[in-house]
Amino acid sequence: MITTIVEYKLPSALTRGEILEKFKAAQEKFIHTKGLLKKYFCYNSSDATGTSVYLWESLSCAEAFFTSEMLHAFEKTFGCRPEVRHVDTLMTIDNVTDEVSVFHA
């Protein structure tokens, strides 16, 4: 499993409600995306920074999503270019389902 962490700083702060509306407007592009297991939309209104966390089946799925076109569209929508990092997810703990999962390479 691959976790992608996307961080960005908006040119000006938005309220929680304003950024939530932008997130809702973008949700369709993530539903049924090949290989995307989960996506978390996060925002800190005190410093206008956003963080998105994606859980992917594989690195190839993550890389196929984060194209130069996708990053350009992000920049056009939010007015900033995000920093994107892909990391190997070795293990997860889910306290809602009481599951511990270990992922092998």
Rank of each mutant, 00 (worst) to 15 (best):
H32R: 13
I5F: 14
Y8H: 04
W56R: 01
E83F: 01
A26L: 12
K38Q: 12
N44S: 13
E99C: 05
K39A: 12
T89M: 12
L10P: 10
S58L: 04
I19P: 03
I19H: 11
F66N: 03
N95R: 11
C80L: 14
G35A: 06
K76C: 02
K76H: 08
L90P: 02
Y43L: 11
F66K: 04
A73D: 02
A73F: 01
K34E: 13
K24M: 08
V6E: 01
S60P: 05
P11I: 01
D94F: 04
A62H: 12
T92S: 10
E57D: 09
S60E: 15
K76A: 13
I5V: 06
I5S: 03
T89Y: 03
K22W: 02
V100Y: 06
I5Q: 00
L90S: 03
E99F: 02
S58E: 09
R81M: 03
S46Y: 14
S101W: 01
V6G: 01
V96K: 11
L90W: 10
A105Y: 04
H32P: 04
F23D: 08
T97E: 11
Y43E: 10
V84G: 09
I5A: 01
W56P: 06
H86I: 00
P82N: 06
I93M: 10
G79L: 14
A25Q: 13
I2Q: 05
V100L: 08
Y54G: 09
G35F: 05
F30D: 08
V53W: 01
R16E: 14
T49I: 02
A13W: 07
K9N: 03
T67V: 00
L14A: 10
P82T: 01
V6C: 03
P11L: 11
L10I: 06
Y40G: 13
R85A: 04
A64F: 03
L90H: 03
S12F: 15
E75K: 11
S58W: 07
S58A: 09
W56M: 04
H104M: 12
F30R: 08
Y40N: 12
V6H: 01
L36Q: 06
K39E: 11
K24P: 01
A73R: 00
S101Q: 07
C61M: 07
Y40C: 10
V102G: 07
P82D: 07
K9G: 07
C61D: 13
I31L: 08
H72G: 05
